[in-house]
Simulated scan of single mutants.
Amino acid sequence: MSTSSASTSAAPELIAVERSAGIAWITINRPESRNAMNRQVLAEVSAALDEIHDDAETHLVIFTGAGEKAFVAGADINELAQRTPVDGLAATMQRLYERIENFPKPTIAAVNGYAFGGGHELALACDIRIASSNAQFALPETGLGIIPAAGGTQRLAKIVGIGRATDVILTGRRIRAEEALSWGLVSEVVEPEELKEAALRRAESILARGPLAVELAKTVVQHGFTVNPSTGMLLERLAQAVLYSTEEKAEGTRAFIEKRRPNFRPDADTAEHS
Results as ranks from 00 to 15, higher is better:
M37Y: 14
I77S: 13
S46Q: 08
T84W: 01
E51I: 05
E57P: 04
H59P: 00
R83S: 07
A81M: 14
G67K: 00
V86D: 11
T58D: 04
K69F: 11
A75V: 10
E44T: 04
V41W: 06
D54N: 11
T58E: 05
T84A: 01
E79W: 05
G88W: 06
L49I: 06
A43L: 14
I77C: 09
G65A: 01
L80I: 05
Q82G: 15
E57W: 08
A43Q: 14
T64G: 10
G65C: 07
H53P: 14
H53K: 15
N38V: 02
V72K: 09
P85R: 10
T92C: 12
I52A: 04
V41K: 08
A66E: 08
T58Q: 02
V86E: 14
E68A: 11
D55A: 09
I52V: 06
L80P: 01
L89S: 15
N38I: 03
E79S: 08
E68S: 11
G67A: 00
A90L: 15
V61K: 00
A73C: 07
R95C: 07
A43P: 11
V41G: 05
A66K: 06
K69P: 05
D87Q: 07
D54S: 11
V45K: 02
G88C: 10
Q40Y: 05
V61G: 00
A66R: 04
L49Y: 03
H53E: 15
I62D: 13
A91H: 01
A43C: 09
R95M: 10
F63T: 02
A91I: 00
I62H: 13
V45N: 02
T64A: 10
E79Q: 09
A48L: 05
E57H: 11
A48R: 01
I62W: 12
K69V: 11
T92L: 12
I62F: 12
K69R: 11
A75G: 11
E57V: 08
N38H: 06
F71A: 02
F71E: 03
E68M: 11
N78E: 15
L42V: 13
T58K: 04
E51T: 04
A56S: 12
N38Q: 03
H59I: 00
S46F: 06
G67L: 03
L60Y: 03
P85I: 07
T92D: 15
A70T: 02
Q94L: 10
V41N: 05
R95Y: 08
Q40V: 07
P85M: 12
N38E: 05
E44R: 01
E79A: 06
V72H: 09
I62C: 13
L89F: 15
A47N: 12
